[in-house]
Design a protein around this nucleic acid. Structure first.
Lengths: 334, 334
DNA sequence: TTGATGCGCTAAAACGTTTTAGGCTAACCA
DNA sequence: TGGTTAGCCTAAAACGTTTTAGCGCATCAA
């Protein structure tokens, strides 16, 4: 069963295709189509259930009402929650989202950009990785709106929305120090993105400002793609071989591995051993004792992203790049 | 900067558009284009970075190489993990996924179907809700492949992939009974989908087969869209007013609310009080004590879905509907 | 009476592909 | 010699829209 086209409607209504198109696109008044014709055509459209072919429309107009969302991994709760919020907000403004995960793989990221490009998405929301600078620059040169979030790429001049990773980290460490902690470890990853290095820098700076010398052996860098079991082993080794009274985990999944490690070596969290996780997680609230976490305000981030995108889409010329740094919230539990 | 079109390539290579198209689509041999021309054109394409406009291509061919995925909520880990797996597998076969969440809202689900329809997606993967039967039937009548997963709609004849909810539930309850439990509660939701009623039925049947009379006051039905706090209150009320020695939670988020409730009333899980959650969750492994859960084999489900889709896409005629019921795994912890 | 203006509508081009049908040349066969 | 075949390539239609340019008519001002 072929679906209806605008032509079918035109024939049924005994008017031209043009007239139908004007009515569909709300330009009937402006083009002075008579009330009677408008009514008739609308009725026929209603009754027949005709829906314009978006592909033909995109081909003609050059835009798609689709926003491409490129993230690290949709199965990570931080991203899936952001995706959901962005989707909701975009939807209300008549935009759809296509998403895809890069898995921190440069080639896949590049492919995704090409794919979205050939689908003529109207705008790009990207949580970028190093190595795609050129591709993004090309998008910008072609006049496409691009918003980075969560992570920034310093060499590319485009708008960015992200949490204040540096200060979040700094304040957590300062908190530890205020509680009298002396041997503070950092569990981080080796992916080379600004957001992770900022968290690392906040840690360093807080120690420094408090006259504590930075000790590299208290910093554990986990390979991004390694098996969780290996991660757990490395964390166990750190905890067993070093005198540590506080730990900051730089992502929630590292914290979860850390909790598993603690369980295995039967080390308890308490007055003499504290931990904080970056990014909250359902498990933390439920854990005994409950785990403190740095919360990123997802709602605000999503809202800021959508606002920036819509501004860019509705303005003709290119807007200056904006950087929105959103403060985080440290949730201290138990 | 306008992007290149096939015409630009044709002009540069001094051949016709048709020839370029044949080469791009790998039909050069078949259409007996000379090796020299093939080389020349390929080189020009390579050097210029030309990428075919997928929209024009879709308009002409009527297909998009896109599969639409309609789920309840991308921020629920069951769905986001399935989505990720499906995405991966589809990607390897040259298909892209567009997803969107229905939030169990019939109108939104219908809108999404229309949206995907007007984008001419090649196939639909849907975790359906009651009330969209007609819309899905129209898709099928138009010859579109549609696969249901997680939940089925008995009135619609199309392929389905899902876990064996009935038996999973039955076996969990049987396990409780074997441990000597007598007062077994069920915490479920009021959404009217097959998968939930099957879980409920498994519970009933297991009790019945063991000569335990079904007691409606031990079954708590939670409204789908209510605030979590209210859910927690209701669960607390159940636990405080009834003598209960085991509980099956019908979804992982209900189990999480249940755990929070237990914490608030300081009721401990142990020899005299056991719980099982349907669908695993990271928090369960970490909880003290660890929480038993029914695991759905996500990988297998995703694989089965993709296989069915690809079969349908590659066959001309309509294939008979298949039902794949995949066994679950009960993970008993602590 | 004429020229301008407004109203209600439409023909046709354009967007960038794929694909059908067929053109032209040279070689081959009888 | 003429007819067929094969090899290499192309013109043009079609997909379903949006949009520009403009047509025919009535009204109005001068």
């Amino acid at each position: 069963m072929k679906s209806l086209s605008i032509k079918d409607i035109a024939v049924k209504a005994n008017v031209s295709i043009t007239t139908v198109s004007f009515i569909i696109n709300g330009k009937a008044k402006e083009k002075s189509i008579s009330e009677a014709v408008i009514e008739k055509v609308k009725k026929i459209i209603e009754e027949s259930g005709y829906k314009p072919n978006q592909i033909a429309r995109s081909l003609r107009t050059g835009n798609s009402n689709i926003i491409g969302l490129i993230i690290e991994d949709i199965s990570n709760s931080f991203f899936s929650r952001i995706a959901r919020l962005i989707e909701d907000k975009a939807y209300k403004r008549g935009y759809k989202i296509i998403y895809s995960s890069t898995e921190n793989n440069i080639d896949k990221a590049k492919e995704l950009i090409n794919l979205f490009k050939s689908r003529k998405v109207d705008a790009y929301i990207i949580s970028p990785i190093k190595g795609i600078e050129e591709d993004v620059q090309m998008l910008l040169d072609d006049g496409n709106p691009v918003i980075f979030f969560d992570r920034n790429l310093p060499d590319v001049k485009t708008s960015y929305v992200g949490a204040d990773h540096f200060n979040a980290s700094y304040q957590s460490i300062q908190g530890f120090i205020d509680q009298g902690k002396k041997n503070i470890a950092l569990v981080t990853t080796d992916i080379n993105v600004a957001q992770i290095t900022e968290r690392h820098d906040g840690y360093k700076k807080a120690l420094e400002d408090n006259g504590i010398t930075y000790d590299d052996s208290l910093v554990l860098k986990i390979h991004f793609n390694q098996e969780e079991n290996e991660t757990i082993e490395q964390i166990k080794a750190l905890f067993e071989h070093r005198k540590i009274d506080a730990v900051l985990f730089v992502t929630n999944y590292l914290a979860i591995s850390g909790l598993k490690a603690l369980k295995q070596i039967d080390k308890k969290i308490g007055d003499d051993f504290a931990i904080i996780a970056y990014d909250d997680h359902e498990a933390f609230e439920l854990h005994t004792p409950r785990i403190s976490a740095i919360q990123q305000p997802l709602e605000e981030i999503a809202e800021a992203i959508i606002k920036l995108i819509l501004n860019q889409l509705s303005s003709k010329g290119k807007l200056p790049a904006e950087e929105l740094i959103i403060p985080t919230r440290l949730v201290l539990r138990d």
